[in-house]
Amino acid sequence: MGIGGLSDRELVARCRSGDDEAWGVFVDRFSRYVYAILARGFELNNADAEDVFQDVFSRSFDQLDRLRDDDAVRAWLAQITRRLAIDRIRAGGRDVPVEELPEQVESDFFDRLDEAMDVRGSLEDMPENCREILDRFFVQDQTYAKIGEELDLPGGTIASRISRCLVKLREQLEAAENEPGGRGR
C-alpha cells in the first residue's frame, strides 16, 4: 500500500513526524474539502479563497500537535476553515449579518460534504482507468469527445465505461460502509 492509502490517523502521524511526502498527500486529500467550504459554503471570491486556503493549510501544519483525535482531522480542518473564512468576511465588511453565517453554512452543507468526501475516498481507491474517467466527466465536466480524445478511447465506448465505473464505485462504497467502523480512512 502506498502512502496515499494511509488512514487519516496514520497520515497525520507521518505529517507530525516531519514527513514532507505525507504532507503532500495530506494537502491532496483535503484540498477539495477546504476549497468547497470556502468557495461554495462561504462563497468567498477567488482572491480571498486563495489566501484563506493557504492560511488553513499553514495553520493546520503549525497546529497539528494540538489535534487531540487524529481520526477527527477532517472535522478539525473544517473548524479551522470556517473560523478563518468568517474572519476574512468580517475583515472585508461583506454586507451579510455575520453572526448568522456559521449556522447558515452548516445547515446540511457539511453533512453533504462529508458524504462527498467518502465518495471521493472510494474513488481514490479505484483502479486508475475508472478514477480518471469519472473524475474527468463528473468533476472536470469534460465532454465525451474530449475524454475520448485525451484518453485515446473510441467515442462510443465512453458512456458505457462511465456507467460501469459508477457501478463499481457504488459497490466499493458499499463495501467500505460495511467495514467495521465505516470507511477505512
Binding site: 484540498s31 477546504v34 476549497y35 468547497a36 493557504q54 453533504r112 460534504l113 462527498a116
Partner: peptide, 19 residues
C-alpha cells in the same frame, strides 16, 4: 454518487502546489 462527485471540484493546481 455522481452528484456527490460534483460537490468537490479541484482547487486551482497552483494553490495545491503552494500548500
Amino acid at each position: 454518487i455522481a452528484k456527490l462527485l460534483r460537490e468537490l471540484p479541484s482547487p486551482p493546481g497552483h494553490w495545491v502546489e503552494r500548500a
